[in-house]
Design a protein around this nucleic acid. Structure first.
Lengths: 349, 349
DNA sequence: TTCGATCATGGAAGCGCTTCCATGACAGGG
DNA sequence: CCCTGTCATGGAAGCGCTTCCATGATCGAA
């Protein structure tokens, strides 16, 4: 067993043991074609016997490839990361990276200090690329991304400008789906709870919602802003009800806020969907467990993460993947059912 | 502006510009005392002008210190990471590391492949230390941790054995708190929903719960296992009700499961707390928003993460922090209120 | 048989930094 | 004024790996 405090073996020791030059050993290990079968095999055995694993730092220094990418979550508010949305994205990213030999460096940049750290990471070449989530209006991360020469992939568009590489859910289309559904089910007095106004996702969802409403000849009674939290949804809903006690439907730009809206309705003695229909956005894991189960626009969050990672790897490897828009679709549940026949209330489109 | 594709400046260039030797430059940058004020200042200026940032890979190779630690989340089930619990831990870890110059490498090791990756990370010396969360019974990660020479800190005890360094919430004490509370409030027919039986946290919570119940002279009607998910809690509650339709209280070893239990009760037409009192464990962000708001044993999840990180850094720096048990305490809300006077129903102990 | 062409081979030069060690300047005590 | 101790200084040797390049062996074509 010898859990000895022995140093890790080095390439030289492997080479010595295999009776070949260090160069040959390196080649054999890296599957370079210019090695004879015999040496290749000898090296393989030596590696095996010594339990050799190449030191990644040394390799990184020689190849100028670090073997790690950063996932930076921008936020002025630490708990934003606690949002299941980010966990899901991270999961997606991780699941893709698992198939590569890249490590995932997680950076929660909610303080100025965090931004500064990212700057240093990039300047110190600690990573081969960067994924940026949820960049807000004047977020300094956005600027950082512009300055670095490293590949950067955006998750969700920034408010201004279009980055070279991004993957974005079809927020606008999703907003439209919500509006069409409510219109189709006969709602007339419709309001909306949007997210932070400096988040492109909020803006695009509202935009799509407005478009489709207009097309259906329906007015948008009012819009109140939340912050994607349950609590934010609660109070936005209260404000909406105060101004428009007679509204019969509300679209929230995020499931968390939709859950908050449901709570407020319940507290006010209003029933969903009989009195007010509620549609959310995201289709988080908790949506089906809401009371009543939440009708919501589904966006493929885990795929978002996975595609960001895939895209970044492509760029790092010198390929040019285009950018990507992921489709959204409506998941109908009880908080805003389809109107009459209620037949195919599972998944509408 | 010159967003030129110029190479990053190297230490040699800084030295040249400052008119000192590379050695002196290195010393100045690393605050080595053996440098004159004059040179120190000259180097500072050169660094400034060139925008020099030391290449961390090169530094790592020379110092044999990578400047990164791994947070590995063990799980056979990918979505476990989506549990807000882990997000919160991660947040705590990150908040501490932010004050150091260590990077956080996140490893979601839910597949055999993930385990293999961790093995390689350790062998390839890609990190200076390791934090391990939620190690289950026969988890291979546990074995890995034993074999590596790198510092390892456990978050939550493993099922068998006691690692050298760990931080663990006082699960047993928390279980006791729950039992005492239910006993004190006059409940008699008490059941429990536990977590996976190969998780030490589950076992300890149940153990504490049993102890205090026995001490109070109350029987434990039944125990059903869930898996810390809402769905698991739902079905466990159903099984409990089937076997003991007359139970009047249930303690769930996790908030997710408690929420599930509440749902089942609601569906069965039972009221909480009038018919059945429900106590959870964790005090997740969603606990106060449950219906009814959940009485639960609070564990300081973010601190758990922060303390793990602090501990790991200590070990890496050659200090020996002891291990740590974090206190839990009861947060009383409506799902299991205190009995009569209902006066201090805010935070009991 | 001869002559390139082909290719396995290993020496050596890095990658960019830290740090050991030898050197010399300088200050203060005798 | 000399000697020893102190300390700033920079040359050079790594850290462990990749890769350029020169060398020599091998082989088939001429």
């Amino acid at each position: 067993m010898q859990a000895s405090p022995r140093r890790q073996p080095t390439l030289d020791e492997v080479a010595a043991r295999a009776g070949v030059s260090r160069t040959a050993a390196s080649r054999a290990i890296n599957d370079d074609p210019h090695v004879s079968q015999a040496k290749r095999e000898a090296v393989r055995r030596a590696v095996q016997e010594l339990g050799y694993v190449p030191n990644s730092t040394a390799r990184a220094l020689a190849t100028r490839r670090v073997g790690a990418v950063v996932l930076a979550v921008s936020s002025d508010e630490p708990t934003l990361f606690a949002d299941p949305f980010f966990a899901e994205v991270t999961l997606g990213v991780s699941s893709f990276l698992e198939q590569t030999d890249l490590e995932l460096i997680l950076l929660l940049a909610h303080t100025p200090r965090g931004t500064e750290r990212l700057r240093r990471i990039l300047a110190a070449r600690r990573a081969d690329g960067l994924m940026l989530m949820a960049v807000r209006g004047e977020d300094p991360l956005g600027r950082l991304a512009e300055q670095t020469e490293l590949p950067v992939v955006f998750g969700g568009l920034p408010l201004h400008g279009t980055p070279r590489w991004y993957v974005d859910p079809d927020n606008r289309g999703g907003g439209r789906l919500a509006a069409e559904h409510l219109a189709r089910s006969g709602r007339q007095r419709i309001a909306m709870i949007t997210g932070q106004v400096d988040l492109q996702a909020s803006v695009a969802r509202e935009q799509g919602f407005r478009e489709a409403l207009t097309l259906a000849g329906l007015p948008l009674l009012a819009v109140e802003a939340g912050d994607f939290t349950l609590r934010g949804g609660e109070s936005a809903m209260e404000r909406l009800l105060a101004a428009h006690p007679d509204l019969d439907a509300v679209f929230a730009a995020g499931d968390g806020m939709a859950l908050g809206a449901l709570r407020t309705l319940r507290h006010r003695g209003l029933r969903a969907p009989q009195d007010v229909a509620v549609v959310g956005f995201d289709d988080l894991a908790s949506a089906p467990y809401a009371d009543p189960p939440l009708t919501t626009v589904r966006q493929p969050v885990r795929s978002l993460g996975r595609e960001m990672a895939r895209m970044l790897v492509d760029v790092i490897d010198g390929r040019d993947p285009g950018s990507l828009i992921l489709p959204t679709r409506l998941t109908v549940r009880e908080s805003a059912p389809t109107p009459a026949p209620r037949a195919d209330a599972g998944q509408a489109r």
